[in-house]
């Protein structure tokens, strides 16, 4: 659209620039501000005297002798054992993503290739399940998990998150598999492959772009979940997000809100890296369902 750009009057140009500048500030500033503030003491991050202290770190200088301090990080990671929560998050994410994708590729492939009516209704059922707020399901899990002693374990949480993930994973992979030409696996079957062999040797080698994109979103769901992890994990097994929520209860009273700030920054960093590396895949994933209708 370069021809339009040249003809654009200055008023419109300024308007566009204004919108973009404002949006960039809204989108990025809170993160930068919190990152900067996480290296200060509480008196600077929540500055009663003068908001400029948060930038200059006056009180941080007085209390620690330098204008940056890693006390918040030390307190969160070592004293409050945030490393344990981080480790749990890593475990949960790895298993949820692997299992979701295994189940999802099998199911999504079948849904994309079946021409029967029930495949359509299967997808509609998945859409309805997708609409259920996860917390409504939790009240169904708790009595059973307590009764059978399943409550509190990482494995329980993983399988629950996999199940909650399935509707979305199926929809997404289904639309990716639709784009892989049907002739590909059908010609393999003409050559004598079974359906599974065709899937194994023909489809799996070409499906990775779709699987990576879907995996990113499974990861996000597992990483970001609060409703399920907060309710069905015991205190020792907590992942990062419920751990941060529990900081709020304890640290606010102890005056160590900076632990929570440091933990928040630590939990955000991997997401930053992920968005930076996989930006293209995320954008294509978000639009996959929409553009095709």
């Amino acid at each position: 659209m370069s021809d339009i750009t040249k003809k654009r009057p200055p008023a419109v140009q300024i308007l566009i620039f204004g919108v973009l500048a404002l949006w960039m500030i809204l989108a990025a500033f809170p993160f930068l501000w919190t990152l900067w503030g996480s290296f200060k003491v509480e008196g600077d991050f929540f500055s009663k005297a003068d908001w400029f202290y948060a930038l200059s770190g006056t009180l941080t200088q007085n209390e620690t002798g330098s204008s940056f301090t890693a006390d918040g990080y030390e307190g969160a990671w070592i004293k409050e054992e945030f490393w344990r929560a981080a480790l749990n998050s890593v475990l949960v994410c790895i298993f949820v993503v692997t299992i979701s994708l295994t189940f999802g590729t099998l199911g999504g492939y079948a849904l994309a290739r079946s021409t029967y009516r029930y495949a359509f209704w299967f997808l509609i059922a998945a859409l309805i399940f997708r609409a259920m707020p996860p917390i409504t399901l939790v009240s169904g899990y708790l009595p059973v998990f307590f009764g059978w002693n399943l409550w509190g374990h990482l494995a329980t949480c993983i399988i629950v998150l996999v199940a909650i993930n399935q509707p979305f994973t199926l929809w997404m992979l289904h639309s990716f598999f639709k784009n892989i030409p049907q002739d590909l696996d059908e010609s393999a079957m003409v050559d004598g492959c079974t359906r599974f062999q065709a899937f194994r040797h023909v489809i799996i080698p070409v499906m990775w772009p779709g699987v990576i994109t879907t995996g990113l979103f499974s990861f996000l769901l597992a990483y970001n979940d609060f409703a399920v992890t907060a309710m069905i994990l015991s205190k020792e097994n907590q992942t990062m997000v419920p751990k941060i929520a529990s900081f709020l209860g304890t640290t606010q009273t102890k005056g160590n809100v900076m632990f929570a700030v440091a933990a928040v920054v630590s939990a955000t960093a991997p997401l930053f890296v992920m968005v930076m590396v996989f930006q293209r895949q995320i954008v294509s994933g978000l639009t996959a369902g929409a553009v095709k209708g």
Binding site: T102, F103, G104, L106, G107, Y109, A110, L111, F122, A126, F129, M132, L137, Y141, I159, V160, V162, A163, I164, Q166, P167, T169, L170, R195, F199
Partner: peptide, 14 residues
Amino acid sequence: FVLPSSVAMLLFIF
């Protein structure tokens, strides 16, 4: 093919 995800969804959603 849809068995694993159906079982997961039946057990933990339905």
